Simulated assay, not measured.
Amino acid sequence: MSTPLRVSWLLLCAVTTVGRAQPPVPRVTELPSAASALLQAVHAVNAQVVWASGHKGTVVRSRDGGNSWERLETPAGDSLEFRDIHAVHADTAWILSAGSGSRSRIYRTTNGGATWRLQFRNADSAAFYDCLSFGSSSTGVAYGDASQQRTNILRTEDAGHTWQLLAPTAVPAPLPGEGAFAASGLCVVHGNANTVYIATGSPGSRLFRSRDAGRSWSVENTPFTRGGAAGLSGLSFASPQRGIAVAGDMNRLRTDSAHSVVGVTTDGGRTWSMRARPPRPGALAGVTWVPGADPGTAVAVGFGGAFYTRDEGRSWITITTDVTTGVSAVGRQVWIGGANGKLWRVDF
């Protein structure tokens, strides 16, 4: 028979164990916004400076951690969809407009959006550019859907003043109709300055990897869902080895219920451990590790809502049921962009 002292000690241990197993619930704040269109990509430079971009020529910026936002004038009025954005500080950023032929463009500002310089305009009517990423303030990579029976990867070493289309010998040969989903701006990401990853969507859910800052590439097959409009949609790498990826069926934006849509790798994408999908149907668009939180913490976004995990995707908790696509994290903070110009900050 247990003594009262032993019972009290066991209760104390149980309470302590439960307390350790259940970290505080993150604080979710819906932020004021200067936009009304879908904000498809978000990039947080630091805890204060955050940029976001999206449809109808939209680019917004916050310089106070998301408490206020300013709408920036962009080229071509509201005719372009800026589906990716990458910034290095409050003044300098690149935006990528996705679309067929000449609608795929890259612009850069060095004065906080007061003016933008056109750096790249796609001359291939069959190509469609999806995402870009910079490993430093000068070296970056952009990926476009395959065309003319070749894989389209651009690279710059001079901050985008010139972009070089890599030779077919430096890149994987494409699958028929291979391309990426310009869903969150996270189909091209860096693991560090030299390690770059590209997630392809349909038809094969393949992963391209470069270990020389984008000069040459190898390819890995993955176990993620695949199909005519299904495949990988977003990546996040905390290091060159440790990554998390999401996928979705873009023909079923609100109703996708495929199971092979979340996975974690610890060997740079050679192998993947598949995880549970979030609790609501909908294609997943993007994902990010939360670097300042517990190691297993990540946020995934998609057309069924936004979700967080504390255990590397084994379980998920809903943040919002609104459509969300852009996501970026710094420290313990995550910024999310979604439909109708909505923005959220999640503090872990």
Rank of each mutant, 00 (worst) to 15 (best):
T3G: 11
V7M: 10
S8R: 14
S8Q: 13
L12R: 12
A14R: 00
V15E: 07
T16I: 10
A21H: 11
P24H: 13
V28P: 05
S33T: 15
A35L: 08
L38G: 00
V42I: 05
H43S: 04
N46W: 01
V49C: 04
G54Y: 04
R61P: 13
R63W: 03
G65F: 02
G65R: 04
W69C: 01
R71P: 07
S79T: 14
H86I: 02
D91Y: 09
D91Q: 15
W94D: 06
A98L: 05
G99D: 04
Y107L: 10
R108W: 10
N111I: 14
L118V: 09
N122D: 14
F128T: 07
Y129H: 11
Y129S: 13
D130M: 10
S133E: 14
A142S: 13
Q148D: 15
Q149R: 15
N152C: 12
I153V: 14
L154I: 09
D158T: 02
T162Y: 01
Q164D: 05
L165P: 06
P168I: 09
V171Q: 11
P172Q: 00
E178V: 08
E178N: 11
G179A: 15
A180C: 11
F181I: 00
A182D: 06
A183W: 04
S184C: 08
L186I: 08
A193H: 02
Y197G: 02
A199T: 07
G201A: 08
R206I: 11
R209T: 09
S210M: 03
A213R: 05
S216H: 13
S218Q: 11
N221C: 01
N221S: 12
P223Y: 11
T225R: 14
R226H: 12
R226E: 11
G228F: 12
S236L: 01
Q241N: 07
G243K: 04
N251Y: 08
N251A: 14
R254S: 10
H259T: 14
H259L: 14
H259A: 15
V262Q: 03
G269S: 12
A276Y: 08
P279R: 14
G282M: 06
A285F: 13
A293S: 15
D294L: 12
P295I: 00
P295D: 02
G296L: 01
A298I: 09
V299R: 06
G304D: 05
F307T: 04
F307A: 05
T309M: 05
G313D: 09
G313P: 06
I317P: 00
T320E: 01
V330G: 02
L343F: 01
D347Q: 12
